[in-house]
């Protein structure tokens, strides 16, 4: 175990000492802050207009129970950043290894490739979880500013905390998938392009509206199915099924990447 911890610690210091990783992570967080700021006024206005019987109008013409609607808004705000941008960060982290023979240096330090892959996955999970928690904290801070005069306790409900847990799991799992694809392809570019394609398929709902059975098997679509309310969005599967799909994607793709890394020469 101590060998694994040492290797995972080394992978984490690699991530932390890479300038490009910090640049991209910073850009993503900045974008999140910017979008949150732009949305804050709309949300505050909507909260001020909550009717005495507790209905809110977030989208023009739609009156919904305020508490639920605000929590949904909070979740979809984080969800957007988590599924769209975290896989990009993961692909950049994974791709660092395939620049200018860096992989050989890593294999010299940790020659057992299975161990190396496990260490990389652990370090990625830790780092991405950190980023996801930061994203959720920012979302919560904005939402708190919007609702503090109406119901400051809204953000601490049990359901809300469960949603945060699911978001965190989703963030880690989609990042692992993107990391594994990049490692399989040995290219940051291919990792990013495939991640963006998977994301575009889920977000445009192309498959969900034509062949929902296929859509339900895609990782980002599974993320939607896991987190959004069936009443508000067209979903292609149940939350339980989605959870299985996501975990299977993360496990299988990481295993495949580890297997290939073991078999190929470290070039």
């Amino acid at each position: 175990m101590s060998v694994l911890f040492a290797a995972a610690g080394a992978e984490l210091s690699k991530i932390r000492s890479s300038r490009i990783v910090w640049l991209i992570t910073g850009a993503v967080i900045a974008l999140h802050l910017l979008i949150g700021l732009a949305n804050l006024r709309n949300t505050s206005t909507a909260v001020e207009g909550i009717t005495p019987d507790g209905l809110i109008e977030i989208f023009a013409g739609e009156h919904q129970p305020a508490g639920e609607a605000l929590i949904d808004l909070l979740v979809s705000f984080s969800l957007q950043i988590v599924v769209m941008f975290l896989p990009i960060i993961a692909a950049v982290i994974a791709g660092q290894e395939f620049r200018e023979g860096h992989l050989a240096q890593s294999v010299l330090a940790v020659p057992r490739r299975g161990l190396l892959m496990a260490a990389k996955a652990i370090a990625l999970v830790v780092f991405m979880a950190g980023v996801a928690i930061l994203v959720e904290l920012i979302s919560n801070a904005y939402m708190f500013l919007a609702v503090k005069d109406w119901d400051p306790g809204l953000l601490l409900g049990t359901d809300t905390l469960a949603d945060h847990g699911k978001l965190l799991a989703l963030a880690v799992l989609v990042s692992l998938v993107s990391f594994a694809i990049t490692t399989l392809a040995r290219s940051t570019l291919i990792g990013i392009v495939v991640s963006v394609l998977l994301m575009a398929l889920a977000m445009t709902q192309v498959l969900a509206r034509t062949v929902p059975a296929v859509d339900a098997l895609l990782p980002v679509s599974a993320g939607r199915n896991l987190l959004l309310e069936p009443a508000d969005a067209d979903l292609s599967s149940s939350a339980g099924y989605a959870a299985i799909v996501l975990v299977a994607w993360a496990l299988l793709s990481t295993l495949a990447a580890g297997l290939l890394l073991s078999r190929r020469d470290a070039r």
């Binding site: 290797a7 610690g9 080394a10 210091s13 200018e100 330090a109």
Partner: peptide, 18 residues
């Protein structure tokens, strides 16, 4: 080779940790 966008000392630090 070391990754070009890392500082020299960081390159040695991760190797030492591993």
């Amino acid at each position: 080779q070391p990754a070009p966008d890392r500082r020299g000392v960081d390159h040695l630090i991760w190797i030492a940790r591993s």
